[in-house]
Amino acid sequence: MKQIVVISGKGGTGKTVITGAFASLAKNKIMADCDVDAADLHLLLNPVIKEKQEFRSGKTAVIDADKCVRCGECVNICRFNAIEDSGQYFIDPVSCEGCAFCSHVCPVKAIEMKENVSGEWFVSETRFGPMVHAKLGIAEENSGKLVSIVRKKAKELAENNKCDWVIVDGAPGIGCPVIASISGVDCALVITEPTLSGLHDADRVIQVTRHFNIPAKLVINKYDLNIQMSGKIEEYCENNGVQVLGKIGFDKAIVESMVNAKTIVEYCDGKTKKDISDIWDKLEKNLS
């Protein structure tokens, strides 16, 4: 069983469209959406939820107003400015880091740490097979941990069902959720676009893969929007030992397929489908 994660550094480069296409192309796989902060893969795969679990993570301080003597000690020591005063002290759960420092210094034990329910995760069935996905609550943190849960469940399902692939739609950026998305995968496929920002962000995310010793390969999406810049990205890849697995042209059909809730492979038979299929074939060959 091999695990592939599709990442991009920069958002909007077509990561989810390509992950969706792989759902159509790969056989005997589990899909996982690790972009838990702004998940979109479900819009293409239309999952039917079979199992739903609460995601508990971290703690938030809560002040018992009846016990509080307003000594102000908690306000003095909190480095996250989470304690607000509206005649009585209360904790702003958005600012609270969950460090529990206040609960230790409160002389009258008026502060308790409560576990957060900060999201949900799901095991679903799609027309392409099982999918594991999640929804992080609004303004919640620790999405890296939720990503890890989704990854773990997907891997477990793949092992139990003797699947060949786990295909992961990764998180954007280079921070905690991305690190959790790529840990231990067999290949990270970086999707970029031929723009200076695309190159800049691809470079940063490739450095992350290197930091964690994950093999990375790259795809240039919408390459024909700026052929010269595409050339620069290819040059960058050559200098940095990153294989360019393929290039995909700008195609309005991609937006149309999205509007029709279909993967691009299902939606039309054009060149884009062929290009993505070639990328998948190469990836499959590369990893087996």
Partner: peptide, 13 residues
């Protein structure tokens, strides 16, 4: 930054 989690809140608040 994109999304809805902690870095977003830190930036928008």
């Amino acid at each position: 930054p994109p999304g809805t989690s902690c870095p977003v809140i830190s930036s928008i608040k």
